[in-house]
Simulated scan of single mutants.
Amino acid sequence: MKDITLENERVKLSLLDLSNYKHLIAIANEKDLIFYSPSDISTPEKLKDYVAIAVDGFYQQTTIPFLIYDKIKQAHAGSTRYGLINWKNKVLHIGWTWIGHDFQGTDLNKHMKFLMLQYAFESMKFEKVEFRIDERNIKSRKAVEKIGATLEGILRKDTLMLDGFRRSTCCYGILKEEWEYLKATVFIDIH
């Protein structure tokens, strides 16, 4: 796979790797940043391991991890990725997204999702984009609903969390045939 940079006037998504992940150390230390994730980024070493797994997935062609740069605040904001990339069936997931508290509640996430959806549907020619979200994470669920994702079902107690809790996961999706409508309505202010 080639080097991918997704960018507009608001945000720049560049490949995350072991040479640039240190931009995320301070953000990764923010309290409860990834409370609803089974991952652990609480120390620089654990963050490096998290990034190493994502980078390995990139070389296996199952993930594309991104470093998020907020152009308005002129600061690195967090990380996101394409994951569980199924090249045969043309389905991938957008997730593993975390942005610092100072960047939440801005339009940064909407701009990121627009760029990622546009690239998945228009450049990669994928048929479906999925989002998997902890059932308890109402904020993230509302965010993907706001950009037009449809709740397709809930996987009951399918993910073991770090504290031993078994979470249920909400499965959302956007189909390729829905993209043009969403681009013209939900994302009309972006492109």
Rank of each mutant, 00 (worst) to 15 (best):
K2E: 13
D3L: 10
I4R: 04
I4Y: 13
I4G: 14
T5A: 12
N8F: 09
N8M: 09
E9H: 05
E9Y: 08
R10M: 13
L13S: 15
S14T: 15
L15T: 12
L16W: 04
S19D: 12
S19T: 15
H23R: 11
I25S: 01
E30L: 11
K31G: 05
F35G: 06
F35A: 13
Y36M: 07
Y36Q: 05
P38Y: 13
D40A: 04
A54N: 10
D56F: 11
Y59E: 11
Q60S: 13
T62P: 08
I64E: 10
F66Q: 12
I68Y: 06
I68W: 02
D70N: 09
K73T: 07
Q74C: 06
H76A: 08
H76C: 04
H76P: 04
G78K: 07
S79D: 06
S79T: 14
T80F: 09
R81Q: 14
Y82E: 02
Y82G: 10
L84F: 10
W87F: 14
W87E: 06
W87L: 11
K88Y: 13
K88W: 07
N89W: 08
N89I: 07
L92D: 03
I94V: 12
G95M: 08
W98L: 03
G100F: 01
G100I: 03
H101E: 15
D107K: 05
L108V: 12
N109Q: 11
N109K: 01
N109Y: 01
N109H: 09
K110V: 07
K110G: 02
M116H: 06
L117H: 07
A120S: 09
F121E: 02
F121Q: 08
M124I: 11
E127C: 06
D134C: 10
E135M: 06
N137A: 02
K139T: 13
A143Q: 00
L151N: 13
L151K: 01
L155M: 13
R156S: 00
D158P: 01
T159M: 15
L160S: 10
G164W: 09
T169S: 01
T169A: 00
L175A: 06
K176S: 15
E180G: 05
K183A: 03
